[in-house]
Write a protein that binds this DNA or RNA. Sequence first.
DNA 1: CCAGCCTAAGTGTGATCACAGATCACGGCA
DNA 2: TGCCGTGATCTGTGATCACACTTAGGCTGG
Lengths: 244, 244
Amino acid sequence: MERRDLHAHGRETPAGDRPEPEGALARITLGTQVYDALRDLLIAGGLAPGERLSLRTVAERLGTSMMPAREAVSRLVADEALEVLPNRAVRVPVITLQKFRELTRVRIAVEGFAAAEAARAVKPGDLAAIREHDAVFRHEVRAPEPDLERAMRANRDLHFAVYEAAGLPSLVAIIEGLWLRIGPVLNLDMRSSPRRLAEGAAQAHHADLVAALGAGDAEGARAALAADIAASAAFIETTGRLAP
Amino acid sequence: MERRDLHAHGRETPAGDRPEPEGALARITLGTQVYDALRDLLIAGGLAPGERLSLRTVAERLGTSMMPAREAVSRLVADEALEVLPNRAVRVPVITLQKFRELTRVRIAVEGFAAAEAARAVKPGDLAAIREHDAVFRHEVRAPEPDLERAMRANRDLHFAVYEAAGLPSLVAIIEGLWLRIGPVLNLDMRSSPRRLAEGAAQAHHADLVAALGAGDAEGARAALAADIAASAAFIETTGRLAP
DNA sequence: CCAGCCTAAGTGTGATCACAGATCACGGCA
DNA sequence: TGCCGTGATCTGTGATCACACTTAGGCTGG
């Protein structure tokens, strides 16, 4: 985890130093900012499974006091994106093979449902955005020197653009919780063997998905997404990084 | 919200007064206890939609300081079981009709999947427990003076016994989050017109569900559960307590 | 030289204090 | 009589301190 301040200026931010109301529409507290920062790190693979965290370290790294860090970690623990051991140590959970398979089954059911609903409810504007993310992903993995960061981000954006097209915000929130849990292992393994990206399995599934969405084929969209998740999961299992 | 202490003795629990390790296997902090207390209140309908909370009030009511109340409320806000308005006021969310319908659709998909999986994975012991909850529920709603509290609890126990029989803990956690959101409106309306319970629709759906589970009929179980949820939701909508 | 204790550093949890902002009722001015 | 301003009070948020507990490392005694 690299040093990154929440505020633009240095670390000295004693209190009441709120430089800009930040548009002030949404609730934006320090705790929420720390939460988002940790959240991005988890989904992007910046925190490896088993890595240990400390409230004071997190607070110092992000230039705040311990309180916002407590709130953020507390929420992430509630999401099961972090876990606090009986030793009072906070770490990112080490997923067992059994748990990974369970999460995969749940993902196929939930995200598959979202894809099916998206095929029924998708609007032209949504579809255009989805195609755009797909294009970015395809371009990136076909490049001579693929930028993994960009590829993974495009993949994520593509998936969530589909889910959001279903018009069920609470479902998207549920899926975000699932990604928060599998993010660390997924990113870690992808990073360790980027070769898989070039194999093109994901591209094919994405193409099927986009086609089904365009045709309003709910079951086709569900099947394509399920195949994408299953293929990805199967690859992860072969790398053998999962705990027994 | 009635006065209820977390500890057996009076309100004076200054600090470090940890009378009993409480088995000491699982992590049991004051924050978690407050969280569970509020959670039960929400699911059981002890907190009405729109009702406002205050950290200091919650803390005093439960005999702790403000810190555990902060953590609990913070987690519940993350679960969308509570919301904090831009005015810095915490309250139980007022569900709109649109949001209610959305949640119902998601529930039918997710809980329906759980029921289908349960039909495939149910073990004799699970089935016995499910039948027992069903019997309690049936007995209670047929009684001359139905005990709503007991009936609702039996209904909840029945549903979750089914979900747990699916053997997918993360799915159960997701469903708990959903119940946390619809709990307040569901309980409020049931309480206001207990007549519906006697109509027997729920009993019939439960009977279908149990029969399908016993027969290993996944699609039958899914259909029975979907019908149960849909019927309940339709009734709630007729009461017209939902916000526009 | 090795094993055992034992101290010191570090952990999360809880309490308390400080503060900016919102709310609301009361009182004074037009 | 009606309305606006104004201060007391209450809100969540953040900082800081205190404490019980774990853990790892260095010392001592064999």
